[in-house]
Structures are given as structure tokens and as C-alpha cells.
Design a protein around this nucleic acid. Structure first.
Length: 470
RNA sequence: GGCGACGUAGCCAAGUGGUUAAGGCAGGGGUCUGCAAAACCCCGAUCGCCGGUUCGAAUCCGGCCGUCGCCUCCA
């Protein structure tokens, strides 16, 4: 049975959806004021893997992911660029979706925009005011944390401790320094919507509550996001949602991925230490980023280095190799391979059932890959071989790897006819035993990032740029 | 200062009481190859430090050292 670590209870719990086989999953989406970096990619790859595994296990997942398109940074950035916030956000939303497609992240079923949920947001804020959980000050509306007796339960904080350590400039108009904005009155020139409290825009936390409630209902199974969202974002979401609907828990399983680090610190826009998704996609196989991410457990922070990324890239080759066609004829060892495939599937499921232990699961898949390669070397073929490959392919796809064709990343397609030509010329030379010239061609191609492999079936080639590009 | 996580071979990383401590990358030695490459075979760690609990600990407890996250926008 699948167990999931729940941030709320700080332990692994058996996964029992509210209404099986349906699973309602909400994942916090990006604020679209700039290009996404690989820290974002990590989070979405992780939850894509979660969704795929749930689907593999027979669940019917409904996946909602928001776009925050109303927010201070968006306003600032669009003003700097002299374009409308709509134009700015449309640009980055489009880029984001294309990059997620490239990373083989399944699209959510619904992508609500904050700017299009204003009526729902206003409805919830009005409800919170009515119930005494919120109050109006000069066109702003704040959530009254003191009215929520279990505030802090997700992040394990108590109000008193928070106040003691607060470094935030205190807004004297708020009843409590920790009260947070549900609605912000707008200044002239800022995007604004009419509301019972005057023109303004929603606070950050309320949009996720509104969208989650609107598209998935008052209670959902899984809510995911980066560990940096636990406080205050998700804490506040719980406070708002549960206070408004009265349904507890708002979310049955809170899942948080560890943060991706670069240079010893969290990769973030504000620190400026980032590698964008675009930079990775330009030069690398998207599967390599996925392997890099899934090589460690999703709750642990991972550090990006060129070396560890390159290791993932090389490891990927191993899987591709295992998916190459067999040689030889059916033999007795074929049956052993069939058994190995069954064992692997079982071990894979066992690993994944333990809070999505992808690192262990991948280890099992590498074992299977080695068995397949060994069998091919021994000229074993037959139904067992085919089944082993089918299993490997299927389970890799459950983890979200894209394995069309022979697994060759698609790039520089226009160069391929010329590479084929050079390879053909070299084959002629080899047939005439002109080794010097043949080797020269091979070396030159290597320098250009094309690696040759002479096999009994002829010469094969793959793209393999020299390491540490960028 | 408060809350939390982590520290396993050169690098990445699984393992949280009891077989030979998974797997990947790099490296070394082989097989194969015209030579290579790929693949396959073989080779490496007693688990940050100290103390404790236990018949037995990487795995539990305490202390120390170190790294990181959250407490402010953030996947």
C-alpha cells in the first residue's frame, strides 16, 4: 500500500483518498513575472511523477495548478518594461507551458489564473468577514490569525514564538502583526478590481484557497509545493480555507519537495543564483534533468553542480542502451529475464509505495537494465527479453521519462543527413581497411559531439557533446 | 533567537536495530573490437565526532562540530 509523508502530521501515512479512485491534487504554480529556473522544474517534475504513479496505481487524478498573475513583482516588472501586466504574464505563462511540455510534465486539467478568480475570492473574503475571521482597514482586508485557534499547525509554530522572532516591519493598522492581507487596496495605476471594500487586488494566499475550493471542493487529497511554501503560504491557506468552509482538514496530505540549491544556497530569483529551464533545454536531454531530480528522494534538498548533472546525463545512456534491440535467438536464459522483469516491477512498486522513493526505484531499474544488456551480450533473445524491455520502458515512463524511438534526444536535425554521409564514407573506408582515414573521421565527429559505435549491424551514432559545456 | 532538515566510498545517493551497507557517475583491471566506443565481468566505504542504550546500531538516546531551509517575496 502507498504511504505518503504528510507535512501536517510529520509522518508517513497510508494513502486513503477521500473518494477513491478519485484523487484531487492541487499544486502551487509559479508567479509569472520571469523565466522559470530548474528549482521550479524540480518541483513540477516531482509532482508529475507523483501524479503518474498514482495513475499507474489506478487512481483517477484531477490535477489543478494555478498561475499567480496578480502580484507586486508582476506590477513592478511590467512597469519597468513598459508593457501591461497581461502582456507580461501571458508571455511567461506561454513559455512555462512550452517548457513543461518539453520536460514531459503532464499538463494539469485546469490552470486557473488568479486574475480570473476574483468573484470567488471576493465571495470567500466576504464569508470570512461575516464569520469574524477578517476585518477591513482602509480598503485592505486582513485575516485575523488570533481568531483561528489552530493557526500554525502545519509549520509547527505558535503565534507567540512567531511574534518573538518577527522581523517584519509592523503595520500598526493590523490587530496583530501576523495578520495577513486577503485584499489589498490598489494605488493609482495598479491593476484593480471592484470589491465591497473599494478597488483593489487579492492577496497572495487567498487565490490558492479560492481556486482549490472552486475547482476541487472544500476538501482535497493532496496539496503540493516547494518546502519554502510551508510558511506562511500554506499555513495561511489552511487558516483561510478551514475558517471559511468549516471543513477540516482542507487538505488530507500536504506534500513538500526539498529545495534545489546552487552554490551552497537555495536557487532563487531574489538571490540571482539560478540556472533557467531554458538553459538546460538548449543543450541537454530533458530526461537528464528528470533523472537528476529523481535520483534523490523528493523531500531532500538537492544541489545542482555540473558534475552531478553530467552523471545523470551519463546514467541516462545506460537506460537507452538497455532499450536497444536484441541480437541472437531465443534461448534458455530468456526465462530468467522474464522473472527478472517481474521481480523488478515488484521492487519498483515497493520503493514507490514508500513515499515515492524514486532513488531506490531507479536503482532497481538500473539492475534490470544491466540484466537486459548482459542478456543481449550473450545473444539471448525471445519473449522474456522483449518483456523485460517492455517492463523497463513502462516503468521509466511511469517516472515520466519520454522514450520515443530509440531514446535519442532530438536536436540539430538539420545536421543529420551530413552526419549520415560522413558515417557512410567512413564505412567505405573501413571496408577497404583504410583505418587511418576512418579513425580520423571518427575523431573529428567526436570533436563535433557525435560519437560513433561500430556494431555487427553497422555503425551507429549518438549525440554526445564534450562534457562541461555551458 | 525560535522552528525544522541533513552529514553514508573521489562525486551523487538508497538504506532508519540483526544476511556480504542498493544503485548511478568517475577511476583501475579484464572480455569484446582492426583500433575505439557501447555493453558485460571483476575491484572500493563500517556510515561527521564523542558518549550512552542494546546480545547486537549507519539505523535509538544525549552532547558536540558542520551544512542547509523556514521565520520576508519564493517551487
Amino acid at each position: 500500500m502507498l504511504h505518503i509523508y504528510n507535512t501536517l502530521t510529520r509522518q508517513k501515512e497510508p494513502f486513503e483518498p477521500l473518494d477513491p479512485p478519485f484523487v484531487k491534487m492541487y499544486v502551487c504554480g509559479p508567479t509569472v513575472y520571469d523565466s522559470a529556473h530548474i528549482g521550479h522544474a524540480m518541483s513540477y517534475i516531482v509532482f508529475d511523477m507523483v501524479r503518474r504513479y498514482l495513475e499507474y496505481r489506478g487512481y483517477r487524478v484531477r490535477h489543478v495548478q494555478n498561475f499567480t498573475d496578480v502580484e507586486d513583482k508582476i506590477i513592478k516588472r511590467s512597469q519597468e518594461l513598459g508593457i501591461s501586466w497581461q502582456e507580461l504574464t501571458a508571455r511567461y505563462i506561454d513559455e512555462f507551458l512550452r517548457q513543461m511540455d518539453a520536460l514531459n510534465v503532464k499538463r494539469a486539467h485546469v490552470y486557473p489564473y488568479a486574475s480570473q478568480e476574483i468573484p470567488e475570492i471576493i465571495r470567500i473574503i466576504e464569508g470570512l468577514i461575516e464569520k469574524g475571521y477578517a476585518y477591513v482597514v482602509d480598503g485592505d482586508v486582513y485575516f485575523r490569525v488570533r481568531a483561528d485557534d489552530d493557526y500554525g499547525k502545519l509549520s509547527g509554530r505558535r503565534l507567540d514564538e512567531l511574534q518573538a522572532g518577527a522581523r517584519v516591519a509592523v503595520d500598526a493598522r493590523k490587530e496583530d502583526p501576523l495578520d495577513f492581507a486577503l485584499w489589498k487596496a490598489s494605488k493609482p495605476g495598479e491593476p484593480a478590481w471592484d470589491s465591497p471594500w473599494g478597488p483593489g487586488r487579492p492577496g497572495w494566499h487567498i487565490e490558492c484557497s479560492a481556486m482549490s475550493i472552486h475547482y476541487l471542493g472544500p476538501q482535497i487529497d493532496i496539496h503540493g509545493g516547494g518546502a519554502d511554501l510551508i510558511f506562511p503560504h500554506h499555513e495561511n491557506e489552511i487558516a483561510q480555507s478551514e475558517s471559511f468552509t468549516g471543513c477540516v482538514p482542507f487538505v488530507k496530505y500536504w506534500m513538500h519537495n526539498g529545495l534545489l540549491q546552487l552554490g551552497g544556497e537555495k536557487m532563487s530569483k531574489s538571490l540571482g543564483n539560478l540556472v533557467t529551464i531554458g538553459e538546460i533545454l538548449e543543450r541537454h536531454d530533458p530526461n537528464a534533468l528528470r533523472l537528476f531530480v529523481l535520483s534523490s528522494h523528493y523531500r531532500r534538498p538537492i544541489t545542482y553542480t555540473d558534475e552531478s548533472f553530467a552523471a545523470a546525463e551519463r546514467g541516462l545512456e545506460r537506460f537507452y542502451a538497455a532499450l536497444r534491440p536484441p541480437r541472437g535467438l531465443p534461448g534458455p536464459q530468456d526465462e530468467a529475464l522474464r522473472r527478472k522483469a517481474l521481480e523488478t516491477r515488484q521492487a519498483f512498486e515497493e520503493a514507490m509505495d514508500d513515499d515515492f522513493n524514486t532513488a531506490l526505484a531507479l536503482g532497481r531499474l538500473f539492475d534490470l537494465a544491466r540484466a537486459i544488456n548482459a542478456a543481449r551480450d550473450e545473444s539471448v533473445a525471445g519473449p522474456g527479453f522483449t518483456e523485460a524491455q517492455a517492463t523497463l520502458r513502462e516503468l521509466l515512463e511511469v517516472l515520466g521519462f519520454r522514450l520515443q524511438g530509440d531514446g535519442q534526444p532530438q536536436r540539430a536535425v538539420e545536421a543529420e543527413p551530413f552526419i549520415e554521409l560522413a558515417v557512410a564514407v567512413r564505412s567505405q573506408l573501413r571496408a577497404q581497411k583504410q583505418w587511418n582515414l576512418a579513425d580520423w573521421i571518427r575523431d573529428r565527429l567526436q570533436e563535433l559531439g557525435v560519437e560513433l559505435r561500430d556494431t555487427p549491424e553497422g555503425t551507429k551514432w549518438v549525440w554526445r557533446p564534450a562534457s562541461s559545456d555551458q
